[in-house]
């Protein structure tokens, strides 16, 4: 897939802290630094993979971009409009262009609504179609995601996980958005169904020229679907490069460790492969380490360098960004 270099979404120094309140008077005693200053561009028509281990802030980043959480600071520039400054009706209208696919297909569909109502609701609330047109659009959308249009009158509990996920995709497509945040859309599904859903996402991307932010922790799936990949650790992006560069030549020690965890389907290679094993746990996002966030687990960390200052997120090669003092 070729990317055009037209920037669709520009995230600049996005920060999301969740305050922690304690005591009778609900004083703020600290904050969870879920997303702590991330910047990246998303080009039109590409799939940007966002990977990282559990709790590193991937989902929060996705939701903050969508303004489901109000950003603590930073801007999200979408087609020249800063989403972070929009409120109420303006934001509601922008939602037509940015959609989301959720992780858990069992939780993301209202059990009290029929599939037709769920998929048709976006069209209804934006007053873009008459009830008759909505019915036709819903049938059309169900077809697009390879479901029988007659399913529109059924309830979500009558479907399997993969089918539900496709209903969620149909809902996201209803308003013909430009950009879709896929928040681990396949991690709750069986492996066989995962391929089905990923293939569907790729088909739809080709058909409608969609742009994806694909959040996942499955590295091989990200490798399959992404144009470029960003690696997150404890609220920051540590490395961002195109897929090929990142998977063959990761520069950040965390990316190296992460990628070395992917098994190779060849016993001879697997035998000789050197694995980077990280010690300890991810530090608490309430009190992140000073300087480089990764220094507490980094195999090559140098005292006096890594704990002194935050590494800058700089471009070492064209299109290859790394946040590390030692690269």
């Amino acid at each position: 897939m070729e990317t055009q270099n037209e920037v669709l979404l520009k995230v600049d120094n996005l920060v999301k802290h969740f305050p922690i309140y304690r005591g009778v008077f609900q004083r703020q005693v600290g904050a969870v630094h879920a997303v702590d200053g991330i910047s990246f561009d998303v080009y039109k028509g590409e799939t940007l993979g966002l990977v990282g281990e559990s709790g590193c802030g991937k989902s929060t980043a996705g939701r903050t971009i969508l303004q489901l959480y109000k950003p603590t600071s930073g801007s999200v520039d979408f087609q020249g409009v800063d989403l972070a400054t929009l409120k109420g009706e303006e934001l509601r209208h922008m939602r037509k262009k940015i959609q989301m696919i959720f992780q858990d297909p069992y939780a993301s569909l209202n059990p009290r609504m029929t599939v037709g109502d769920i998929i048709g609701e976006p069209l209804m609330v934006h007053n873009v179609a008459t009830p008759k047109e909505i019915e036709e659009r819903v049938a059309d959308l169900l077809n697009k995601v390879n479901l029988n249009p007659a399913f529109a009158s059924r309830y979500p509990h009558e479907f399997s996980g993969g089918q539900r996920q496709r209903i969620g995709i149909a809902r996201a497509l209803a308003l013909q958005p430009d950009f879709i945040v896929c928040d681990e859309p396949i991690s709750a599904l069986d492996v066989s169904i995962q391929a089905q859903v990923v293939n569907l996402l790729e088909d739809l991307q080709a058909q409608f020229g969609l742009t994806y932010l694909f959040i996942a922790h499955d590295l091989s799936m990200v490798r399959h679907i992404s144009t470029r990949v960003a690696v997150m650790y404890l609220g920051i992006i540590v490395e961002l490069a195109d897929r090929k560069t990142l998977y063959t030549n990761p520069l950040h020690p965390y990316s190296q460790a992460l990628l070395s965890a992917v098994p190779v389907a060849d016993p001879v290679v697997e035998e000789k492969r050197k694995r980077v094993i990280l010690e300890g746990d991810v530090p608490s996002p309430v009190n992140p380490p000073s300087g480089c966030r990764f220094r507490t687990r980094c195999p090559i960390a140098k005292p006096g360098v890594c704990d002194a200052s935050k590494p800058e997120f700089r471009e070492v090669d064209p299109g290859h960004f790394v946040a590390c003092h030692l690269v």
Binding site: R63, L68, R95, M100, S108, N110, P122, V125, G168
Partner: peptide, 11 residues
């Protein structure tokens, strides 16, 4: 999630 989803589509 479905309440979040409703917010995403602009309900």
């Amino acid at each position: 999630d479905y309440v979040l989803a409703a917010r995403v589509v602009g309900v």
